[in-house]
Simulated scan of single mutants.
Amino acid sequence: MILAPHLIKVKKKEVGLPHISEATERQKRDGMCWEKEDELYNDGGAFKITARTSEGIIVTLIADNYYGYSKKEVKTQISYAANLLGNVEEEHAGGAIAFPSYNLGDGFADWNQFAENHLTFDEMVGMYGHIMEEMPEGYAIDKTYRDIIYVPESSVFNLVDQKVSWEKQDKAFSIRLNPKCTYISPAGYKVRMSKNPYVPSWRLIGTAAEGTFCHKLHCFGGWKIGNFQVHQRCHHLWSVFHCRL
């Protein structure tokens, strides 16, 4: 990293930019050409030039008297190195997948949740039968995690009776509602028992199958105006914002 604030006085002609008569349309649009020999590069304003290689070698030249840019550039280079290495993130970046959960009380039989993707128990077994052990009563147990129970889309949970019940071929079936087990419907909706941390009672907890990915903003300093901090450069999982004052 090279800090060289005096380079704001470098002329366009001196750095090899073409005359406007020889410039491309893009060079004209970006101001990367000159008409008069005394025209300054970037109109005499601060600028940064960075060269990177696929091996991770980075050389950055900063022509400005705001030396805080060096800290931001270090973080940028760390992020670049992390991307090249793969499966790692820069220190200030991070995230989590949040799955909404709900207090279902003493009973639950919400067909909208159970049949959200219109998948039946038989179709689920056909798709994932290799990971579960199907029982003749019409439910299945995970082969790896024996406390995960797959139940039909018509299941009814009753905490008072401690039963999970459903119908199969016009016959009623049920299994014990076990506080150590998690029950999953064909739509992926999960139901489990949970003890209330404040009173001596239990309730059913339902968890949605689809989560929300929450990603922490990854920011590189900025300017403070009054009581507001204005970040010059912020990286987000979905968007990149460039704010220049």
Rank of each mutant, 00 (worst) to 15 (best):
S21A: 13
S21R: 12
A23R: 05
T24F: 02
M32G: 07
E35A: 09
E35W: 03
E35Q: 09
K36L: 14
E39F: 02
G44P: 00
A46F: 02
I49S: 01
R52C: 12
T53G: 10
S54K: 15
G56I: 05
I58W: 00
V59I: 01
V59M: 00
V59N: 02
L61R: 02
L61S: 00
G68K: 01
K71R: 14
K71G: 14
V74L: 06
V74Y: 06
I78E: 06
I78A: 04
Y80N: 06
L84Y: 02
L84P: 03
G86W: 02
N87G: 10
N87W: 10
N87P: 04
E90Y: 06
E90V: 15
E91K: 12
A93F: 06
A93K: 08
G94C: 12
G95E: 11
A96N: 10
S101K: 11
Y102E: 01
N117V: 04
H118S: 13
L119R: 01
M127T: 11
Y128F: 14
Y128Q: 12
Y128L: 14
Y128H: 15
I131F: 14
M132E: 08
E134C: 11
M135K: 11
E137G: 11
G138N: 09
T144D: 09
R146D: 14
I149A: 03
I149C: 05
E153R: 05
E153Q: 08
F157T: 04
N158M: 01
L159N: 00
V160T: 14
V160E: 10
V160L: 11
V160G: 05
D161A: 09
Q162I: 09
K163T: 13
V164W: 03
V164I: 04
S165F: 00
E167Y: 10
E167A: 08
